[in-house]
Write a protein that binds this DNA or RNA. Structure first.
Lengths: 233, 233
DNA sequence: GTCTATACCTAGATAGAC
DNA sequence: GTCTATCTAGGTATAGAC
């Protein structure tokens, strides 16, 4: 017996672990945290429940890893957009649009990450990631204020408001299992590219820009003028 | 044996039930949902664990009742302010102020209602109450738009954004056990009436008004001009 | 290394005495 | 009606065979 595992062994183990994480993520996206028992996840991954503990010391650890991977990806995407080219306000608008679109394209997972009830360990992780979103938004707001594009304000508080606003606006379309949301608060199909999704995005972006204090007079690349919004009920 | 309970009996039972709810609420406010076991609640109420089931069919039912009472009270207060005297924008500002102040004065409970991880039944109730908040905000926004005080927008989406913004901005000061929050994101004392609380309220209100699109030029009753906000880090 | 089977632990819920 | 003591279920985690 070797003192060290061979490269091939390591690769195999790592692949198994990755596969487990991927399947766990899929299960969570489908049925939520509460229903994602060790048994269900193991079944989905095609291994025995006990084997899960070859890769993770506890269910919590696996759940946290699932959350970190998925949420970390979203943070990275948002980070790239918010720190990309263009002025601060344009980046803010674009960032929110990208974030929302991605969420609406993968609802189950987005809901799990944003709002679904979860065990304390995941809840703590969620708070941590919300802090990261706040930090990203705060950067852009600060920059916008410095550039004279936004009025004087506390960037941290505005960032928190933006984070909460985006999450809450998305929560209901995401929470509705499939197409039960009405009007601009959800989409009717599954691909997430329907007209009402666009309306939702436009309104969300507008609200976010207003919240940061962006000048409404400046042209936004989001469609012609303002497409007279309609109320749901 | 009487077919009906005597009025005295009914009163006694009702009082016991009320006492149980009150104690359960206190326990939840102190230690959160997760730690509020049937045993802990019963102990606090001075009865045996089994006796809880004389008043509620299940732990979930008790938790839901606790949530409904507390959240219902907040909704009623907000409702009264938002539908009170004054123009729509003034009421919106006042309503947010009152809501935030109340939350900061009773942090444990506010955190439990707004953000703390909870069992699915409570989570569902929370979604329902957030819908009510949205409806209240939507009314005021709609009114403000009609009165020409606010720009054209989708009231439901703005209302969701406002609900999320308020919750998220408050979540961190509330979540920090006691005075660990820095700068305007929290208070230092316990009474909730310190200077930094006022700063937080002012910034939150400003962000909310911007989000709804209120004209920043109009005077707000909240302090002299704008008290040059400072950043935390 | 992976599976099967099982132990165990926590917390909610119940039965019967007083 | 309330308490004590007990039962139970559900799901995590482990032990030992292959």
């Amino acid at each position: 017996m070797a003192y060290r595992k061979t490269p091939a062994e390591l690769r195999r183990l790592d692949a198994a672990r990755e596969h487990l994480i991927a399947r766990a993520t899929a299960v969570v996206a489908e049925v939520g945290w509460a229903q994602a028992s060790v048994t269900a996840v193991a079944d989905s991954a095609g291994i025995a429940a006990g084997s899960v503990y070859q890769h993770f010391p506890s269910k919590s650890a696996l759940a946290v890893e699932v959350f970190r991977r998925a949420a970390g990806h979203e943070v990275a995407v948002l980070d790239e957009v918010l720190h990309g080219p263009g002025d601060a306000v344009a980046r803010l608008a674009h960032g929110v649009g990208v974030f929302a679109r991605r969420a609406l394209e993968n609802r189950g997972l987005a809901y799990a990450l944003l709002a679904a009830p979860a065990e304390p360990a995941v809840g703590a992780e969620r708070l941590d990631f919300r802090r990261r979103y706040r930090a990203l938004f705060a950067d852009v707001v600060r920059e916008g204020v410095a550039a004279g594009l936004l009025p004087a304000q506390h960037p941290g508080i505005t960032a928190a408001a933006l984070t909460g606003a985006v999450g809450e606006v998305l929560a209901y379309p995401l929470g509705a299992p499939d197409g039960t949301a009405d009007d601009a608060t959800g989409t009717t199909g599954s691909t997430g590219s329907t007209g009402s999704t666009d309306a939702l995005l436009a309104e969300l972006t507008a609200a976010v820009l207003r919240c940061a204090g962006a000048d409404p007079a400046r042209d936004r690349p989001t469609g012609p003028a303002r497409p007279d919004p309609q109320e749901p009920s």
